[in-house]
Design a protein around this nucleic acid. Structure first.
Length: 278
DNA sequence: CTCAGTGTTCAGTG
DNA sequence: TCACTGAACACTGA
């Protein structure tokens, strides 16, 4: 489920596997949809022999910064993800004949092999993900049009409220707008609005300073917790709407017994609790 | 067989 | 021109 937390988890995974390593092999699926504005041959040429300097993220985009431009910019779309092969068990004296289970991953679109034998694969069943090359990712589309990174660039309370006052869209729509806050996806928007007790229908400019401040702090808290869950394998806290929103059961209730309602807002399914969200 | 889905983009609207 | 909405995209899995 690639929202900001999954992309941040992928960034950390790629950092551990690839930073400082040289790319020795590049495999590209014959899939012109995934490679936007660039041929597989060009991707190979740009990556082969390069050393990975850093792995960065903004919103739901992340990129490998190499020892020479361009950078490899990736987006997971709805169903994409980053995979690394399972390591052989320590008790194995020799890895001869041992192959990582489930490798290469189903729907692999791009696979990199590194000079220490490690591998990274981008897989995407639905093909809405994208692979791009960018000389200066932050200063070119699509990143240049994004708003603040919802995890690391949250504006001050005053500034956040001022930004809301400029917008008329319903809060659910605004939170999903990547030119406002980069990284918020459908379930996180619902979770944040539920915890902040703000209705997804509320026009952004009508939020009071108190509501805006509550929304801002819940945005930070939900993202930070979701990243920690991804990294440490923790569970999402009891009481989160998250646990109930998937089955769309009309009788579903939160841990506190509140009735959950589903409706389409700004083109996406919103799950919310009219009893507590105003 | 049908339908919804964790995201983005683009045409259309007011 | 701008902010916003909804359809389209492409495919899997329930």
């Amino acid at each position: 489920m690639p929202e900001l937390p999954e992309v941040e988890t992928a960034r950390r995974l790629a950092t551990r596997a690839a930073v400082g390593r040289r790319i020795t092999e590049v495999w590209c699926a014959p899939d012109p949809i995934i490679y936007e504005g660039v041929s597989a041959a060009r991707v190979r040429a740009a990556l082969l022999g390069r050393r990975v300097r850093a792995v960065r993220r903004h919103g739901k985009h992340f990129w490998l910064e190499l020892d020479r431009p361009p950078a490899l910019l990736m987006h997971f779309g709805m169903t994409g993800g980053l995979h690394v092969p399972q390591r052989p068990p320590l008790r194995l004296r020799s890895t001869r004949g041992w192959a990582p289970p489930g490798w290469p991953p189903r729907f692999a679109k791009l696979m990199l092999t590194l000079d220490d034998g490690g591998q990274l694969a981008l897989a995407d069943a639905r093909r809405l993900g994208r692979v791009r090359l960018r000389d200066d990712p932050r200063r070119e589309p699509p990143l240049v049009d994004l708003g603040f990174d919802a995890l690391h660039e949250l504006p001050t309370t005053a500034r956040f409220h001022a930004l809301l006052r400029e917008r008329t869209a319903p809060m659910k729509g605004l939170l999903l707008d990547q030119t406002f806050a980069a990284g918020v996806g459908n379930w996180i928007a619902d979770e944040v609005l539920y915890q902040a007790r703000v209705s997804p229908h509320r026009p952004a400019r009508t939020l009071t300073a108190l509501e805006s401040s509550r929304l801002r702090s819940r945005l930070r808290a939900v993202l930070a917790t979701a990243v920690r869950v991804g990294a440490d394998g923790d569970r999402f806290p009891r009481g989160w709407l998250f646990h109930h929103r998937w089955d769309r059961d009309p009788l579903a209730r939160t841990a506190r017994g509140e009735r959950i309602r589903w409706e389409t807002i700004a083109g996406r399914t919103a799950a919310w609790v009219p009893a507590v969200q105003r």
